[in-house]
């Protein structure tokens, strides 16, 4: 029993039209931009909408959730003075909207969880999948992260001084995991750790038993554009490194004053 990566998809890799991925126009029409982005990534990751049928868990992770809809509803509450408000943005604003939508697409009744723990959300979701696999309840699990950029969020975080070194990004990454090694397995999740303090660059390799050939990826160094769940996108880069022959890749996620997380991926042996 372990945790194996069977497929991983980032929003930039979604090539199929959303109308093909989500054929029901009735389901599509209410989806905001971020929901469209995340659900499309999820469906592409499981190889088309029918792929949702075989899932035993849908676990999503987001730092800020469906920000644009939250903002739209809040704006309406204030400007329309709490009168005659459209319910749709309120319904779409909840953090579990994406997870719920994926289940709804194929009426999948499986375990459905949403983590909203800022920069740790994706790692918390991975840990959940890891524990389910160890408990023998794993099967096929879809774990995904998403966050959207809005003008207001950009402006507010700019005033907080958060865009000095990086720019404000957005994105979604979904990973299909299995608890058994399969022919399609491309990497194994070896460890998910939540150290209580920062670890200096010189100490990481020793602490996690990395050799000179192993790769260490730092989330804040891997990308110019960041968002709360950016480490999911660095995790995707780590999977790519494994595909290209690395035997072990460590993702070190630390930013915005939060304690770090460490995820270690290994090649299939």
């Amino acid at each position: 029993m372990g945790l194996y990566v069977s497929n991983i998809t980032s929003d930039s890799q979604v090539v199929t039209d959303v109308k093909v991925l989500v054929p029901d126009a009735g389901v599509r029409r209410r989806m905001s931009r971020v929901i469209r982005m995340a659900v499309s990534t999820a469906v592409e990751c499981v190889g088309g909408i029918e792929g949702i049928d075989g899932l035993d868990a849908i676990i999503t992770a987001t730092g800020y959730g469906c920000l644009a809809d939250s903002e739209r509803f809040l704006r309406n509450v204030i400007s329309d003075k709490e009168d005659l408000l459209n319910p749709t943005p309120f319904i779409q604003s909840t953090f579990n909207t994406v997870g719920g939508q994926i289940a709804l697409l194929r009426h999948n009744h499986c375990y459905n969880m949403t983590y909203v723990n800022r920069i740790h959300s994706f790692e918390d979701a991975l840990l959940d999948a890891f524990m389910r696999a160890e408990d023998g309840e794993g099967g096929r699990m879809l774990v995904g992260a998403f966050d959207e950029r809005t003008d207001s969020q950009y402006e507010i975080m700019k005033r907080m001084g958060l865009w000095r070194k990086h720019d404000c990004g957005e994105g979604s990454v979904f990973v299909l995991l299995t608890s058994q090694k399969e022919d399609s397995s491309i990497a194994e999740v070896l460890e998910i750790d939540f150290p209580s303090d920062s670890i200096g660059e010189q100490d990481i390799a020793q602490r996690y038993g990395c050799s000179d050939d192993d790769v260490i990826l730092y989330n804040v160094c891997c990308t110019m554009e960041i968002y709360p769940t950016i480490s999911a996108s660095v995790f995707a880069q780590a999977v790519e490194k494994i595909k290209k022959g690395a035997s072990k890749v460590l993702v070190y996620n630390e930013m915005w004053g939060m304690t770090p997380t460490v995820v270690i991926l290994g090649c299939i042996v």
């Binding site: 459209n86 319910p87 749709t88």
Partner: peptide
């Protein structure tokens, strides 16, 4: 249409 649309139609 569904129950949410009914609410939007009322509006």
């Amino acid at each position: 249409l569904d129950s949410i649309d009914a609410l939007e139609i009322i509006l």
